[in-house]
């Protein structure tokens, strides 16, 4: 029987071949320096981004371009991954996104319109059927998420409750699936995401002045950080409580900086950039592994990061942000 290294040998070969096509720093710089958005799209087209020419005339084609690139990435995972369950890890967030949107739309009587993602594997009809009572229309974990979101929402009816409960269920589902697939790096990556999200919740909720009940329900279990202790530290309110929870976790510097920013009442975007940095370091480590599932997953994550960078550059360019500001924002933000 093949071990993980042997099982993923073909996938690693394929990802090594295609990762040469990832946008390098020089190409990103060319996109940043492009005189206008159309020229930026042309450079992206030269660098391998398809579907660009046909939609150049549209007002805001960036979402369409990136969705199509992500769809291509999903096809790549499907045809390359030796484990067909792996694709679910990457499409699940979109399924849960659509569940959130349709549940909120139905609960509050608003049209979901352009909030629906086309990258999900579940159809909107089946989600709507499930919301209408036909729970067997979608897999159990999704209907359970809906049920739990509705239950908590009935206790405190407000739209963000649906979001936080469905997100929590999503991470539970992701962790369960990652453990079932049996790739430690994948589990580590999801746990890292959970930790970053929990810290983000802690600081953002504090800045927004949200109550402890909401934070307790929003914090996601399953990461390396203890979400219960984090909730207690939030309730406690003292900076030392947070430092105690984060002691020897590697997140101390984020906590320190976050508390400083909170004290000064400044934007927490800097903290989000720290999280990006952590994620990028994890991707880098994975790509340096010679054989196994890590380089394959590392490539997928690097491609997703690249799409985020392209969105950032094009959106900033469309809004007329200066090149220096863009470069400053991208300084440590690219794989």
């Amino acid at each position: 029987m093949l071990g993980l290294e042997g099982k993923y040998a073909y996938a690693v070969g394929r990802s090594r071949a295609v990762e040469a096509k990832l946008l390098d720093r020089a190409t990103i710089d060319r996109v940043v320096d492009a005189p206008d958005v159309q020229s930026a799209f042309k450079i992206l087209g030269e660098a391998g981004y398809s579907y660009v020419d046909s939609i150049l005339k549209e007002e805001s084609p960036i979402d369409e371009v990136l969705n199509k690139e992500e769809m291509k990435l999903f096809y790549f995972i499907k045809e390359t991954s030796p484990d067909e369950r792996l694709i679910d890890i990457f499409t699940l967030p979109y399924d849960y996104h659509n569940i959130k949107v349709l549940l909120k739309a139905r609960t509050y009587g608003v049209p979901p319109a352009s909030a629906i993602s086309g990258l999900a594997s579940l159809s909107t009809e089946s989600i709507n059927d499930a919301l209408g009572g036909e729970v067997q229309a979608i897999p159990d974990e999704f209907s359970l998420a809906i049920e739990r979101a509705q239950a908590v929402h009935s206790l405190r009816p407000s739209p963000e409750i649906i979001d936080i409960i469905v997100d929590k269920e999503m991470y539970g589902d992701l962790l369960k699936r990652a453990r079932a697939i049996g790739i430690p790096f994948l589990t580590k990556q999801i746990q890292n995401e959970i930790d970053c999200l929990n810290l983000s919740i802690f600081f953002r909720a504090r800045k927004m002045g949200r109550d402890a009940w909401l934070v307790e329900h929003a914090l996601v279990p399953g990461g390396k950080l203890d979400s219960v202790r984090l909730a207690t530290a939030y309730k406690d309110g003292a900076p030392d409580s947070l430092m105690n929870v984060l002691s020897k976790t590697g997140y101390e510097f984020i906590a320190k900086r976050g508390l400083e920013l909170l004290e000064k009442g400044r934007s927490l975007s800097e903290i989000e950039r720290f999280f990006e940095g952590i994620s990028i370091r994890l991707i880098d480590q994975a790509r340096q592994v010679p054989l196994g599932p890590e380089p394959f997953i590392g490539y997928i994550l690097a491609k997703q990061r690249e799409l985020e960078v392209v969105r950032l550059v094009i959106a900033s360019k469309t809004a007329g942000v200066s090149r220096d500001s863009m470069r400053e924002r991208l300084r440590d933000g690219y794989v």
Partner: peptide, 20 residues
């Protein structure tokens, strides 16, 4: 602007779908 540069159109629409 910064939020729009880091969030897709769908995410932004979903976030602001219902008024609090």
């Amino acid at each position: 602007l910064e939020a729009r540069a880091t969030m897709s159109n769908e995410l932004m629409e979903a976030a602001l779908l219902v008024s609090r």
